[in-house]
Amino acid sequence: MTDWFPLWLSLRVSATATVVAAMVGIGLAYLLAKGRFRGRGLLEAVATMPIVLPPTVLGYYLLTTLGVNSPVGRAWERLFGGPLVFTPTAAVVAASLSALPFVVRTGRAAIEDVDPRLEAALRVAGHPEWRIATLVTLPMARRGVLAGIALGFARALGDFGATVMVAGNIPGRTQTLPIAVYDSVQAGNDSAARTGALILAGIAVVVLLTVTSLSTRRT
């Protein structure tokens, strides 16, 4: 009998994380592409950091900032009656941060690629900036933005290091598919490890094909 919980949990966690990363990430991408303000470089560096940071370092920082001994962790415990760490929600936080840089970087490049003359024309015609952004800039940059979201989803689904540190390896509760693969290898359960690995590899291929088709069929 195969336990499908890890796959189901992984899909739930990474779908939620993708939505969070998309909402925050598109906003940040737009700000970085269009905004001219002090600390822009620093903001971009911080938003991109999870790509280059070892996941364990990200996990360590999350455990320190969200753990039961941190102000955030304590406030969470007061509000919701239980610690944030070692819950599926903690896995969502880790996965969202892992996915964010992909949305920000790819999205920013796509937004910068939109012909500025088009936006200038609308500006001259008296349209407010938010209308230009939602009616022209973002729709025209959608392929790049979607490619970033797809990559972010794949990264969220694949996270191991940060998730295992901040959410642990609790079967039936926080054991995502990548962690289940690791656990199966440790337990000597080769067939479960093989199934999990195959599913993750399959999803990765589908995501990469999607990204390729998004970036090649340009008009």
């Binding site: 753990g67 610690p83 760490v85 070692f86 642990g168 609790i170």
Partner: peptide
Amino acid sequence: EQIVNGAPF
């Protein structure tokens, strides 16, 4: 480490 950090065991 996990238990000290509040893991639900």
